[in-house]
Design a protein around this nucleic acid. Sequence first.
DNA 1: TTGTATGCGTTATCAT
DNA 2: ATGATAACGCATACAA
Lengths: 319, 319
Amino acid sequence: MTNIKDLAKRAGVSVTTVSRVLNQHPYVSEAKRIKVERAIEETGYLQNINAVHLSKGKTNLIGVVLPFLDHPYFAQVLIGVSEQAKIKGQTLVLFPTNYEIEKEQAALRMLRQKQLDGVIICSRVSPLPVLEDYVQYGPITLLEQRQSDHFSSVFVDHQAIFTRALEYLYDQGHRDIGYTIYRRNGTHSTVREKAYRTFLERHRLPFNPDYCFDGALYLEDSKAVWQKLKTLKHPPTALLVTSDQVAAGLVIHAEAFNIAIPKACAIIGLNDEPIAKALNLTTIRIPLKAMGEKLLDHVLSSEREHTSFDVTLIERQTV
Amino acid sequence: MTNIKDLAKRAGVSVTTVSRVLNQHPYVSEAKRIKVERAIEETGYLQNINAVHLSKGKTNLIGVVLPFLDHPYFAQVLIGVSEQAKIKGQTLVLFPTNYEIEKEQAALRMLRQKQLDGVIICSRVSPLPVLEDYVQYGPITLLEQRQSDHFSSVFVDHQAIFTRALEYLYDQGHRDIGYTIYRRNGTHSTVREKAYRTFLERHRLPFNPDYCFDGALYLEDSKAVWQKLKTLKHPPTALLVTSDQVAAGLVIHAEAFNIAIPKACAIIGLNDEPIAKALNLTTIRIPLKAMGEKLLDHVLSSEREHTSFDVTLIERQTV
DNA sequence: TTGTATGCGTTATCAT
DNA sequence: ATGATAACGCATACAA
């Protein structure tokens, strides 16, 4: 493997000069530049990038922490991140955590070891104080509604979204509204519950703990939702659903459970995934790809920035 | 940032000794080991991994080249790869190419620059001779049926699969069988056409170029398939479909096109994705996750290996 | 405009 | 068992 020294010898210049043409610095005569370039040609020289990293103390590598790869929500975000990464000349290192804290910490450790210039966390399990410990080693950007001085963030106002969807259903005459979530202690779940309780109080509606269905993330989780719903004496007449995946599952399996949609149960999905359009799902469109792009921008920036995105209620056939 | 030198000074030993305990080499006295470990504790020392990479000439980074992130087929493979990567202590660098050759080459370049120890290519656009040029820099493993001395590979026998599905449909009485593909010049497409023509000849069936529908990859592509099929005087009575995504779309939109399934048109999907079960799609199960795991194993191995996986025909309601 | 010398943090070699 | 020292390949302050 020819290195910068060989190159210098071959071109009859110093390594500094070679380094200069390599990094397109000014102050190198045309004659020598050509010599060096010829030497590069002849030898098929290529930098050892690890030496560059060591010397510069950075890698152009960005870590992306996310729980699942096989869920359209995160896939869309990841597409946005990766497209912007291409534009900005960054490379992505993937950390699918499945919500295991060790895998999340692997990313953090690599940040600390200077293998990563920054980390994007799409959904976290580490508590915030832990993350705050790591910002001294490099920027961390969160896909989460959190106005912190430590992290940049990109988010939609889930509380507002949820409230809006609830009011929409209320306007359509629904009084018994349920909702599905994935993790009881997830960030979104807390927000949803708060919005839900506020909504109930505003309209003087009773709170029913049975109207919150958890464990709903994938399409096939929908069966369990219907099953649980069927056990209720007074089932909800409308459901705000974790994602279009679950909403699609609910619609697909509704017949088997003898439930007419939207008559017996209205459904509002989330994300406006392709399947939502195919199945005519009423849903809330979230600009996930654009959010992914912004995540990359933020993690590259030296400033702490917080960007909020707007959502759109897409009225189709399930309400 | 404390480095190995500081550590040595603090522990009153040489850097060599520190390096030895860091890398768990033998020949270091218990006393010194403890001293060093204490120094590590006290300083919160962490290796600069880039220095390790430079010194060792390897990175424990594996590149994964794949066209799309938002398709269940590749998502499943990627999950397999990443789970095995965790076990083997490897980290994944992602190259979503969207079939743009420059992005594929970015991975190859990083292999050449020693930033990657190896590259897994799930679907390629570069011709094989180009890839062969790069194996001198590190192992390349293909998700593709190709017995080459240059690359390891992981695959299912698509020709056999396709043939088997065709025969299955033939046994069910179908004589006018069509199929969908994504890219006309994709690797799979060539294989499928070959199997198709062989099948037709064996049963002395006529070849009809209209029975091959291209551009079908995502769920929403299914509409175009139905549209084109509707223009045919003698439409096929059965369809072998690119993926369960497309198959699902076909089933979902069948009603709108006034097509009864399986009566008017039988459908066989591919991959046995979750949606296939939900919609009762007859499909061919491919062990994508297991294949992903094997991909990672192969790229880590110094041997060239070729692993074939078996598939299963899942009979459900669309044939 | 160019080159020398040094630093980056670690591992590997070799002598003791 | 331990340590000095030379790589590893490149960037850069400083001198010229």
